[in-house]
Simulated assay, not measured.
Amino acid sequence: MNNIITIVCASSDSYAPYCGVMLTSLFSNNLTHQIECFILSGDMGNDNRQRLSLLAEQFGQKITVLDINKELFKKLPIGERFTNISYEAYFRLLMPSLLSDRDRALYLDCDMIIKTDLAELWNTNLEGYALAAVQDTLRMRKKCISRLGFGTNDGYFNSGMGLYNLQFLRQFEFEKKVWDFVDKQYHLILYHDQDIINCVCKGLIHEVSPKWNMLESFLEKTPPIVPWQREELEEWRKKPCIIHYASLRKPWFKECLHPYKDEFWHYAAISPWNELKPVFKYHGFKRFTKYYLKRLFI
C-alpha cells in the first residue's frame, strides 16, 4: 500500500477557512506521515489559495486545489433541507475519475477536527467494499430506510467521513451508476450526496467505529444510536478521533454550545486563518439554548 495518505475534501471559497482549520488539526496530529490533500472547489479565491500554500509549507505537506465545474451538478438539489449545503457537497462523487491513479482516498468534511493519527483508519481492509464509513444516527436511519426502500438490516451511513476504495469504484462504474440513479430516482434525494452514496453503494459499505466520525448527536446524554454502537460509543465519545460538527450550530457561531467547540478554536489559532472570531449567525441564542438543554451533552 502507498505510504502516502491521500485526503480529499471539498470547499467553496467562503468555507475555506474552516477547511484550513480542519487540515491544520490533521497535519498537527499526523506529523510522522506524508500527506497529500486534494481540495475540490468551484470558486476558490487567490487569498485562500495562498493561505493553503502557507499551511502546506508550515507542515511540509502537499495541498492541491482541483477546480471543478459546478455546472455539472446544477440539476442536483441544494438548500432544500440544509441551507449550509452547496454544490461542493456533490464533488466527492467524482473522486474515482479525478484521482484515477490512486487506489484509495480518505474524504473528510470541512467541519471536522482531527484529533489523532489516522494510520489505523487509513489501513482499514477494504477488500470487496466500495468504502468504509460510520453508521448515522438512529433518527436519521429511521427517516431514510423507508424513504429509500432499504430493508431493516440495511445500514445508512454518514458521508462526512468516508475511506473510498477508488480502484473498486472504478471497476464498479460508480460514477455511471451515480448519474443513472440521479436520472431515475431524483425524487428520492433529500440528504444530497449522502443519499446517493448510500443507495448506489448499498451493501458495499464497511462499517467502522463511531470514533472516526463523532457526530454531535452521538454526544447527547442519551444518544440516538443503533444498538451495536453502544459499547464503541461509550469508549470513544470522551476521546473521539474525529470530531464532526454536523449540525447548523458550527463552532464558529456564538450560538454553538458543542462540548468540543474549543478544539476548533485551538487549531484556528495556529492556522493561517488565526484572525477568525466567533460570530452570531442565527440571532436566536435562547432558541438554541433550549435545543441543547433538550439533549444535554456529556
Rank of each mutant, 00 (worst) to 15 (best):
S12G: 11
K286L: 03
W228L: 05
V65S: 10
L106I: 12
M140R: 13
F218G: 01
Q61A: 09
L94H: 11
K202T: 09
L52Y: 08
Q61F: 02
G128T: 00
V182M: 05
A56S: 12
S14L: 06
I63Y: 10
F297V: 05
Y260C: 09
M1R: 12
I270M: 05
L233V: 01
R287P: 00
E255F: 05
L54R: 15
L106G: 11
T116Q: 03
H283K: 14
G42R: 11
H283N: 15
E120S: 14
L72D: 07
M112D: 09
S11N: 04
F297K: 07
S209C: 05
L31K: 15
Y245I: 04
N158S: 13
Y291N: 04
V65A: 11
E173S: 13
D111K: 01
C19H: 04
P224V: 04
N158D: 10
F59S: 11
M140E: 13
L106R: 14
R81P: 04
D101R: 15
I7D: 10
L23C: 06
L98A: 15
A130T: 04
R139V: 14
P210T: 08
R102A: 01
Y164C: 13
T64N: 14
D47Q: 09
H258C: 00
P240K: 02
P210E: 02
Q61W: 03
G155W: 02
F168L: 10
N30L: 05
S146K: 14
K176W: 00
R295I: 03
V21T: 03
D262A: 13
Q50E: 11
N213D: 13
I5R: 07
Y291V: 00
I205A: 06
S12M: 02
S41T: 06
Y291R: 07
E220D: 02
F285K: 15
P251R: 03
L98M: 15
P259C: 05
R49T: 08
I7Q: 09
S217C: 07
E207N: 03
I205C: 05
Q58A: 08
F285Q: 15
K75N: 14
I243N: 09
T152S: 15
Y282V: 13
K221F: 00
S53L: 08
L23W: 03
V279Q: 14
C9E: 08
C37Q: 12
